[in-house]
Computed example of a mutant assay.
Amino acid sequence: MPEDQNTDVPPNRLSVDPRSDFYSEEALSRDVGIRFNGVEKTNVHEYDVAAGWIRVEVPTAKDRRGNPMVIKLSGEVEPFYRQAE
């Protein structure tokens, strides 16, 4: 069996916020993609595979510190590394 994405999977929890405990520059530099309920999402701020949720940014809303607002959605989360083309 050739090596594929099954042997090289992203972390079970990851955040794009450098202040988070789940931030990993190494994983993010490898271009992590997220499928949520079978649909690829590009605006994911944080995810947790075990708990089955993602946090997505709301593009028009900001919090009082100027950071994008995020909402939590529950469902099937499938992280993957995008292939270099």
Rank of each mutant, 00 (worst) to 15 (best):
M1S: 11
P2I: 13
E3R: 12
E3S: 14
E3M: 12
N6G: 12
T7N: 10
D8I: 14
V9P: 00
P11Q: 03
N12T: 08
N12F: 10
R13I: 14
V16Y: 04
P18W: 02
R19Y: 09
S20A: 11
S20G: 03
D21L: 06
D21N: 09
F22G: 00
S24V: 03
E26Y: 06
L28F: 02
S29L: 09
S29T: 14
R30P: 02
D31N: 15
D31Y: 08
I34G: 03
R35I: 05
F36T: 01
F36S: 02
N37D: 15
N37T: 15
N37G: 10
G38I: 11
V39L: 03
V44R: 06
H45A: 15
D48P: 05
A51V: 05
G52W: 05
G52E: 03
V58W: 00
V58C: 04
A61M: 13
A61V: 12
A61Y: 06
D63H: 07
D63A: 08
D63Q: 10
R64P: 00
R65P: 00
P68C: 03
G75I: 05
E76R: 13
E78H: 13
E78N: 12
P79C: 00
P79L: 01
F80R: 06
F80S: 04
F80Y: 15
Q83K: 13
E85A: 15
